[in-house]
Design a protein around this nucleic acid. Sequence first.
DNA 1: CACGATACGGAGACACTCTCCGGTTAGCAA
DNA 2: TTGCTAACCGGAGAGTGTCTCCGTATCGTG
Lengths: 180, 180
Amino acid sequence: MRADAARNRDKIVEAARQAFRTRGYDAPLDDIAKAAGVGAGTLYRHFPTRESLVDAVMQAWVERVNDAVGKVLAEGGTPRELLLRWFDTYVELISVHKGGPAKITRAMEDDTSPMRTKCQTLRAANAQIIDELGAALRPGVDSLQFARLVGGIASVVDQGNLPAPSVKPMLEVVVDGLLV
Amino acid sequence: MRADAARNRDKIVEAARQAFRTRGYDAPLDDIAKAAGVGAGTLYRHFPTRESLVDAVMQAWVERVNDAVGKVLAEGGTPRELLLRWFDTYVELISVHKGGPAKITRAMEDDTSPMRTKCQTLRAANAQIIDELGAALRPGVDSLQFARLVGGIASVVDQGNLPAPSVKPMLEVVVDGLLV
DNA sequence: CACGATACGGAGACACTCTCCGGTTAGCAA
DNA sequence: TTGCTAACCGGAGAGTGTCTCCGTATCGTG
Protein backbone atom coordinates (compact mmCIF):
# COMPACT_ATOMS: atom_id res chain seq x y z
CA MET A 1 0.00 0.00 0.00
CA ARG A 2 1.28 3.47 -0.86
CA ALA A 3 2.15 5.87 1.93
CA ASP A 4 -0.59 8.36 1.03
CA ALA A 5 -3.12 5.53 1.01
CA ALA A 6 -2.04 4.42 4.49
CA ARG A 7 -2.28 8.01 5.71
CA ASN A 8 -5.80 8.38 4.34
CA ARG A 9 -6.89 5.08 5.81
CA ASP A 10 -5.72 6.15 9.27
CA LYS A 11 -7.47 9.51 8.93
CA ILE A 12 -10.72 7.78 8.01
CA VAL A 13 -10.51 5.39 10.96
CA GLU A 14 -9.90 8.25 13.38
CA ALA A 15 -12.76 10.35 11.95
CA ALA A 16 -15.02 7.29 12.19
CA ARG A 17 -13.99 6.69 15.79
CA GLN A 18 -15.07 10.24 16.66
CA ALA A 19 -18.29 10.07 14.67
CA PHE A 20 -19.31 6.69 16.08
CA ARG A 21 -18.68 7.88 19.61
CA THR A 22 -20.73 11.07 19.29
CA ARG A 23 -23.43 10.04 16.83
CA GLY A 24 -23.57 6.27 16.98
CA TYR A 25 -22.95 3.62 14.36
CA ASP A 26 -25.42 5.17 11.94
CA ALA A 27 -23.36 8.33 11.44
CA PRO A 28 -23.41 9.18 7.69
CA LEU A 29 -20.36 7.79 5.89
CA ASP A 30 -20.08 10.79 3.55
CA ASP A 31 -19.82 13.00 6.65
CA ILE A 32 -17.04 10.78 7.99
CA ALA A 33 -15.19 11.09 4.67
CA LYS A 34 -15.51 14.88 4.84
CA ALA A 35 -14.29 14.95 8.43
CA ALA A 36 -11.31 12.84 7.36
CA GLY A 37 -10.61 15.21 4.48
CA VAL A 38 -10.99 12.53 1.82
CA GLY A 39 -13.51 11.79 -0.91
CA ALA A 40 -16.37 9.37 -0.47
CA GLY A 41 -14.82 7.16 -3.14
CA THR A 42 -11.68 6.92 -1.05
CA LEU A 43 -13.63 5.89 2.04
CA TYR A 44 -15.55 3.23 0.08
CA ARG A 45 -12.39 1.83 -1.49
CA HIS A 46 -10.77 1.37 1.90
CA PHE A 47 -13.99 0.20 3.63
CA PRO A 48 -16.62 -1.30 1.29
CA THR A 49 -19.17 -1.56 4.12
CA ARG A 50 -19.99 0.30 7.32
CA GLU A 51 -19.26 -2.91 9.19
CA SER A 52 -15.72 -3.17 7.82
CA LEU A 53 -15.09 0.40 9.01
CA VAL A 54 -16.48 -0.45 12.44
CA ASP A 55 -14.14 -3.44 12.53
CA ALA A 56 -11.15 -1.20 11.78
CA VAL A 57 -12.23 1.26 14.49
CA MET A 58 -12.27 -1.64 16.95
CA GLN A 59 -8.56 -2.34 16.39
CA ALA A 60 -7.48 -1.76 19.98
CA TRP A 61 -10.59 -3.42 21.27
CA VAL A 62 -9.15 -6.94 21.14
CA GLU A 63 -6.46 -6.01 23.62
CA ARG A 64 -9.02 -4.25 25.76
CA VAL A 65 -11.23 -7.37 25.89
CA ASN A 66 -8.29 -9.62 26.74
CA ASP A 67 -7.10 -7.24 29.45
CA ALA A 68 -10.59 -7.02 30.88
CA VAL A 69 -11.21 -10.75 31.09
CA GLY A 70 -7.74 -11.30 32.59
CA LYS A 71 -8.50 -8.74 35.26
CA VAL A 72 -11.94 -10.20 36.02
CA LEU A 73 -10.43 -13.68 36.45
CA ALA A 74 -7.53 -12.38 38.57
CA GLU A 75 -9.90 -10.69 41.02
CA GLY A 76 -11.52 -14.03 41.84
CA GLY A 77 -14.42 -14.17 44.32
CA THR A 78 -17.50 -16.39 44.40
CA PRO A 79 -18.87 -17.66 41.05
CA ARG A 80 -21.72 -15.16 41.36
CA GLU A 81 -19.36 -12.23 42.05
CA LEU A 82 -17.06 -13.21 39.21
CA LEU A 83 -19.85 -13.71 36.66
CA LEU A 84 -21.57 -10.47 37.64
CA ARG A 85 -18.29 -8.57 37.28
CA TRP A 86 -17.65 -10.15 33.87
CA PHE A 87 -21.14 -9.37 32.57
CA ASP A 88 -20.87 -5.80 33.82
CA THR A 89 -17.58 -5.50 31.97
CA TYR A 90 -19.03 -7.20 28.89
CA VAL A 91 -21.87 -4.66 28.68
CA GLU A 92 -19.34 -1.84 28.95
CA LEU A 93 -17.14 -3.34 26.25
CA ILE A 94 -19.91 -3.66 23.67
CA SER A 95 -21.60 -0.35 24.53
CA VAL A 96 -18.77 1.98 23.52
CA HIS A 97 -20.84 3.24 20.59
CA LYS A 98 -24.58 3.78 20.36
CA GLY A 99 -25.96 0.89 18.41
CA GLY A 100 -22.91 -1.18 19.34
CA PRO A 101 -24.67 -3.85 21.45
CA ALA A 102 -27.14 -4.72 18.68
CA LYS A 103 -24.48 -4.73 15.96
CA ILE A 104 -21.87 -6.71 17.86
CA THR A 105 -24.41 -9.24 19.13
CA ARG A 106 -25.72 -9.75 15.59
CA ALA A 107 -22.17 -10.08 14.27
CA MET A 108 -21.54 -12.87 16.81
CA GLU A 109 -24.02 -14.99 14.80
CA ASP A 110 -22.59 -14.11 11.41
CA ASP A 111 -19.48 -15.97 10.27
CA THR A 112 -19.27 -13.76 7.20
CA SER A 113 -19.15 -10.54 9.22
CA PRO A 114 -16.05 -8.32 8.87
CA MET A 115 -16.14 -8.20 12.67
CA ARG A 116 -15.82 -11.96 13.02
CA THR A 117 -12.26 -11.89 14.33
CA LYS A 118 -13.25 -9.31 16.94
CA CYS A 119 -16.24 -11.46 17.85
CA GLN A 120 -13.92 -14.43 18.16
CA THR A 121 -12.12 -12.49 20.88
CA LEU A 122 -15.37 -11.99 22.78
CA ARG A 123 -16.27 -15.63 22.32
CA ALA A 124 -12.88 -16.71 23.66
CA ALA A 125 -13.22 -14.37 26.63
CA ASN A 126 -16.62 -15.86 27.45
CA ALA A 127 -15.10 -19.35 27.12
CA GLN A 128 -12.40 -18.49 29.68
CA ILE A 129 -15.11 -17.45 32.16
CA ILE A 130 -17.10 -20.61 31.44
CA ASP A 131 -13.99 -22.75 31.99
CA GLU A 132 -13.30 -21.03 35.29
CA LEU A 133 -16.88 -21.47 36.55
CA GLY A 134 -17.09 -25.08 35.40
CA ALA A 135 -19.78 -27.05 37.26
CA ALA A 136 -21.10 -23.91 38.96
CA LEU A 137 -22.92 -23.24 35.67
CA ARG A 138 -26.08 -24.97 34.61
CA PRO A 139 -25.49 -27.64 31.92
CA GLY A 140 -25.51 -26.70 28.24
CA VAL A 141 -24.33 -23.12 28.63
CA ASP A 142 -21.89 -21.93 25.98
CA SER A 143 -20.07 -18.81 24.91
CA LEU A 144 -22.71 -17.86 22.37
CA GLN A 145 -25.51 -18.11 24.91
CA PHE A 146 -23.62 -15.70 27.20
CA ALA A 147 -23.34 -13.33 24.26
CA ARG A 148 -27.03 -13.54 23.41
CA LEU A 149 -28.34 -13.14 26.95
CA VAL A 150 -26.10 -10.25 27.92
CA GLY A 151 -26.14 -8.73 24.45
CA GLY A 152 -29.93 -8.66 24.62
CA ILE A 153 -29.85 -6.76 27.88
CA ALA A 154 -27.20 -4.34 26.59
CA SER A 155 -29.28 -3.72 23.44
CA VAL A 156 -32.43 -2.94 25.40
CA VAL A 157 -30.54 -0.52 27.64
CA ASP A 158 -28.78 1.12 24.68
CA GLN A 159 -31.87 1.52 22.46
CA GLY A 160 -34.13 2.53 25.32
CA ASN A 161 -31.55 5.04 26.59
CA LEU A 162 -31.94 3.54 30.04
CA PRO A 163 -29.81 4.80 32.94
CA ALA A 164 -26.76 2.71 33.87
CA PRO A 165 -28.21 1.39 37.17
CA SER A 166 -30.93 -0.44 35.17
CA VAL A 167 -28.36 -2.94 33.99
CA LYS A 168 -27.34 -4.52 37.29
CA PRO A 169 -30.69 -6.00 38.42
CA MET A 170 -31.17 -7.64 35.02
CA LEU A 171 -27.66 -9.06 34.99
CA GLU A 172 -28.35 -10.46 38.46
CA VAL A 173 -31.43 -12.29 37.15
CA VAL A 174 -29.43 -13.81 34.31
CA VAL A 175 -26.48 -14.71 36.54
CA ASP A 176 -28.76 -16.40 39.07
CA GLY A 177 -30.40 -18.29 36.22
CA LEU A 178 -27.06 -19.45 34.83
CA LEU A 179 -25.58 -20.67 38.13
CA VAL A 180 -26.76 -23.82 39.88
CA MET B 1 -64.09 11.81 8.87
CA ARG B 2 -65.38 11.51 5.30
CA ALA B 3 -66.20 8.08 3.92
CA ASP B 4 -63.47 8.21 1.28
CA ALA B 5 -60.94 9.17 3.93
CA ALA B 6 -61.96 6.20 6.11
CA ARG B 7 -61.69 3.87 3.11
CA ASN B 8 -58.21 5.12 2.31
CA ARG B 9 -57.09 4.80 5.91
CA ASP B 10 -58.23 1.16 5.98
CA LYS B 11 -56.46 0.45 2.70
CA ILE B 12 -53.23 1.93 4.04
CA VAL B 13 -53.40 -0.12 7.24
CA GLU B 14 -53.95 -3.33 5.28
CA ALA B 15 -51.11 -2.58 2.87
CA ALA B 16 -48.88 -1.80 5.84
CA ARG B 17 -49.84 -5.08 7.55
CA GLN B 18 -48.74 -6.99 4.45
CA ALA B 19 -45.54 -4.98 3.97
CA PHE B 20 -44.51 -5.23 7.64
CA ARG B 21 -45.09 -8.97 7.60
CA THR B 22 -43.03 -9.65 4.47
CA ARG B 23 -40.38 -6.92 4.66
CA GLY B 24 -40.26 -5.88 8.30
CA TYR B 25 -40.94 -2.58 9.97
CA ASP B 26 -38.49 -0.72 7.74
CA ALA B 27 -40.52 -1.29 4.59
CA PRO B 28 -40.52 2.01 2.59
CA LEU B 29 -43.62 4.08 3.34
CA ASP B 30 -43.92 5.37 -0.25
CA ASP B 31 -44.13 1.71 -1.37
CA ILE B 32 -46.89 1.10 1.17
CA ALA B 33 -48.78 4.12 -0.17
CA LYS B 34 -48.45 2.75 -3.71
CA ALA B 35 -49.63 -0.70 -2.63
CA ALA B 36 -52.62 0.94 -0.96
CA GLY B 37 -53.38 2.93 -4.12
CA VAL B 38 -53.03 6.31 -2.45
CA GLY B 39 -50.58 9.19 -2.60
CA ALA B 40 -47.69 9.57 -0.17
CA GLY B 41 -49.31 12.77 1.09
CA THR B 42 -52.43 10.81 1.99
CA LEU B 43 -50.43 8.24 3.94
CA TYR B 44 -48.57 10.95 5.86
CA ARG B 45 -51.77 12.84 6.68
CA HIS B 46 -53.34 9.73 8.17
CA PHE B 47 -50.10 8.53 9.85
CA PRO B 48 -47.51 11.26 10.54
CA THR B 49 -44.91 8.69 11.68
CA ARG B 50 -44.03 5.09 10.92
CA GLU B 51 -44.74 4.31 14.56
CA SER B 52 -48.30 5.65 14.37
CA LEU B 53 -48.90 3.38 11.38
CA VAL B 54 -47.46 0.41 13.27
CA ASP B 55 -49.80 1.22 16.13
CA ALA B 56 -52.80 1.19 13.78
CA VAL B 57 -51.67 -2.14 12.30
CA MET B 58 -51.62 -3.57 15.82
CA GLN B 59 -55.31 -2.85 16.33
CA ALA B 60 -56.39 -6.43 16.95
CA TRP B 61 -53.27 -7.12 18.92
CA VAL B 62 -54.69 -5.87 22.22
CA GLU B 63 -57.37 -8.53 22.17
CA ARG B 64 -54.80 -11.10 21.18
CA VAL B 65 -52.59 -10.22 24.16
CA ASN B 66 -55.50 -10.33 26.60
CA ASP B 67 -56.69 -13.68 25.21
CA ALA B 68 -53.17 -15.07 25.43
CA VAL B 69 -52.54 -14.08 29.05
CA GLY B 70 -55.96 -15.36 30.09
CA LYS B 71 -55.19 -18.69 28.50
CA VAL B 72 -51.75 -18.92 30.09
CA LEU B 73 -53.22 -18.24 33.53
CA ALA B 74 -56.09 -20.69 33.01
CA GLU B 75 -53.70 -23.54 32.16
CA GLY B 76 -52.04 -23.23 35.57
CA GLY B 77 -49.12 -25.51 36.48
CA THR B 78 -46.02 -24.83 38.56
CA PRO B 79 -44.68 -21.26 38.68
CA ARG B 80 -41.86 -22.32 36.35
CA GLU B 81 -44.24 -23.94 33.83
CA LEU B 82 -46.56 -20.93 33.90
CA LEU B 83 -43.82 -18.37 33.53
CA LEU B 84 -42.09 -20.29 30.72
CA ARG B 85 -45.37 -20.59 28.87
CA TRP B 86 -46.04 -16.86 29.26
CA PHE B 87 -42.58 -15.84 28.10
CA ASP B 88 -42.86 -18.17 25.09
CA THR B 89 -46.17 -16.52 24.25
CA TYR B 90 -44.75 -13.05 24.89
CA VAL B 91 -41.93 -13.63 22.39
CA GLU B 92 -44.46 -14.82 19.80
CA LEU B 93 -46.70 -11.79 20.39
CA ILE B 94 -43.96 -9.22 19.86
CA SER B 95 -42.27 -11.05 16.98
CA VAL B 96 -45.12 -10.87 14.47
CA HIS B 97 -43.08 -8.47 12.32
CA LYS B 98 -39.35 -8.39 11.69
CA GLY B 99 -37.97 -5.62 13.82
CA GLY B 100 -41.01 -5.87 16.12
CA PRO B 101 -39.21 -7.00 19.29
CA ALA B 102 -36.77 -4.08 19.21
CA LYS B 103 -39.45 -1.51 18.39
CA ILE B 104 -42.03 -2.72 20.89
CA THR B 105 -39.48 -3.10 23.66
CA ARG B 106 -38.18 0.42 23.02
CA ALA B 107 -41.76 1.76 22.94
CA MET B 108 -42.34 0.22 26.39
CA GLU B 109 -39.86 2.81 27.74
CA ASP B 110 -41.33 5.76 25.85
CA ASP B 111 -44.45 7.39 27.28
CA THR B 112 -44.72 9.59 24.22
CA SER B 113 -44.84 6.66 21.82
CA PRO B 114 -47.93 6.28 19.62
CA MET B 115 -47.82 2.62 20.68
CA ARG B 116 -48.11 3.46 24.37
CA THR B 117 -51.65 2.17 24.73
CA LYS B 118 -50.64 -1.13 23.13
CA CYS B 119 -47.63 -1.27 25.44
CA GLN B 120 -49.92 -0.62 28.37
CA THR B 121 -51.71 -3.84 27.42
CA LEU B 122 -48.44 -5.77 27.52
CA ARG B 123 -47.51 -4.17 30.82
CA ALA B 124 -50.89 -5.12 32.30
CA ALA B 125 -50.54 -8.69 31.03
CA ASN B 126 -47.11 -8.95 32.68
CA ALA B 127 -48.61 -7.54 35.88
CA GLN B 128 -51.27 -10.27 35.91
CA ILE B 129 -48.55 -12.92 35.68
CA ILE B 130 -46.55 -11.20 38.42
CA ASP B 131 -49.63 -11.09 40.67
CA GLU B 132 -50.28 -14.77 40.07
CA LEU B 133 -46.69 -15.78 40.87
CA GLY B 134 -46.47 -13.53 43.95
CA ALA B 135 -43.76 -14.66 46.37
CA ALA B 136 -42.44 -17.25 43.91
CA LEU B 137 -40.68 -14.35 42.22
CA ARG B 138 -37.52 -12.75 43.49
CA PRO B 139 -38.11 -9.36 45.16
CA GLY B 140 -38.15 -6.18 43.11
CA VAL B 141 -39.34 -7.71 39.84
CA ASP B 142 -41.80 -5.59 37.89
CA SER B 143 -43.67 -5.59 34.62
CA LEU B 144 -41.06 -3.46 32.89
CA GLN B 145 -38.24 -5.77 33.90
CA PHE B 146 -40.12 -8.71 32.36
CA ALA B 147 -40.47 -6.68 29.18
CA ARG B 148 -36.77 -5.78 29.07
CA LEU B 149 -35.43 -9.26 29.80
CA VAL B 150 -37.68 -11.11 27.39
CA GLY B 151 -37.68 -8.29 24.85
CA GLY B 152 -33.89 -8.46 24.79
CA ILE B 153 -33.96 -12.15 24.02
CA ALA B 154 -36.64 -11.71 21.35
CA SER B 155 -34.58 -8.91 19.74
CA VAL B 156 -31.42 -10.99 19.59
CA VAL B 157 -33.32 -13.89 18.02
CA ASP B 158 -35.10 -11.63 15.56
CA GLN B 159 -32.04 -9.63 14.46
CA GLY B 160 -29.75 -12.66 14.36
CA ASN B 161 -32.35 -14.67 12.40
CA LEU B 162 -31.93 -17.46 14.93
CA PRO B 163 -34.02 -20.63 14.68
CA ALA B 164 -37.05 -20.86 16.98
CA PRO B 165 -35.55 -23.57 19.26
CA SER B 166 -32.85 -21.08 20.34
CA VAL B 167 -35.41 -19.18 22.37
CA LYS B 168 -36.37 -21.81 24.93
CA PRO B 169 -33.00 -22.38 26.65
CA MET B 170 -32.54 -18.63 27.12
CA LEU B 171 -36.05 -18.19 28.50
CA GLU B 172 -35.30 -21.03 30.93
CA VAL B 173 -32.23 -19.17 32.20
CA VAL B 174 -34.26 -16.00 32.77
CA VAL B 175 -37.19 -17.87 34.36
CA ASP B 176 -34.85 -19.70 36.74
CA GLY B 177 -33.23 -16.39 37.61
CA LEU B 178 -36.58 -14.73 38.30
CA LEU B 179 -38.00 -17.48 40.51
CA VAL B 180 -36.76 -18.10 44.05
C1' DC C 1 13.61 12.78 -14.22
C1' DA C 2 10.06 10.14 -16.48
C1' DC C 3 6.57 6.95 -16.47
C1' DG C 4 2.98 4.00 -15.12
C1' DA C 5 0.55 1.63 -11.59
C1' DT C 6 -1.96 2.91 -7.75
C1' DA C 7 -4.89 5.97 -5.44
C1' DC C 8 -7.98 9.92 -5.29
C1' DG C 9 -12.40 12.49 -5.23
C1' DG C 10 -16.75 14.32 -6.04
C1' DA C 11 -20.63 14.62 -9.17
C1' DG C 12 -24.41 12.22 -9.94
C1' DA C 13 -27.62 8.11 -9.99
C1' DC C 14 -30.48 5.77 -6.85
C1' DA C 15 -33.43 4.97 -2.77
C1' DC C 16 -36.21 6.74 0.80
C1' DT C 17 -38.48 10.49 3.62
C1' DC C 18 -41.84 13.87 3.89
C1' DT C 19 -43.97 18.48 2.58
C1' DC C 20 -46.51 21.70 -0.22
C1' DC C 21 -50.17 23.34 -2.84
C1' DG C 22 -53.15 23.04 -6.85
C1' DG C 23 -56.85 19.96 -7.87
C1' DT C 24 -60.82 16.83 -6.52
C1' DT C 25 -64.87 15.40 -4.16
C1' DA C 26 -68.04 14.20 -0.32
C1' DG C 27 -71.75 15.77 1.87
C1' DC C 28 -74.84 19.25 3.40
C1' DA C 29 -78.05 23.10 2.91
C1' DA C 30 -81.15 25.60 0.14
C1' DT D 1 -81.36 18.62 -7.69
C1' DT D 2 -77.81 21.91 -7.52
C1' DG D 3 -74.22 24.63 -5.76
C1' DC D 4 -70.81 25.44 -2.56
C1' DT D 5 -67.15 24.72 0.61
C1' DA D 6 -64.53 22.26 3.86
C1' DA D 7 -62.14 18.18 3.82
C1' DC D 8 -59.31 15.28 1.35
C1' DC D 9 -56.14 13.85 -2.34
C1' DG D 10 -51.68 13.06 -4.64
C1' DG D 11 -47.34 13.40 -6.65
C1' DA D 12 -43.48 16.36 -7.81
C1' DG D 13 -39.72 17.88 -5.75
C1' DA D 14 -36.50 19.18 -1.89
C1' DG D 15 -33.66 16.99 1.42
C1' DT D 16 -30.69 13.22 3.22
C1' DG D 17 -27.79 9.31 2.79
C1' DT D 18 -25.51 5.51 -0.03
C1' DC D 19 -22.25 4.22 -3.25
C1' DT D 20 -20.20 4.06 -8.08
C1' DC D 21 -17.69 5.76 -12.06
C1' DC D 22 -14.07 7.72 -14.50
C1' DG D 23 -11.07 11.61 -15.37
C1' DT D 24 -7.26 13.38 -12.62
C1' DA D 25 -3.37 13.17 -9.34
C1' DT D 26 0.65 11.25 -7.25
C1' DC D 27 3.81 7.86 -5.24
C1' DG D 28 7.60 5.18 -5.97
C1' DT D 29 10.71 2.67 -8.95
C1' DG D 30 14.02 2.29 -12.64
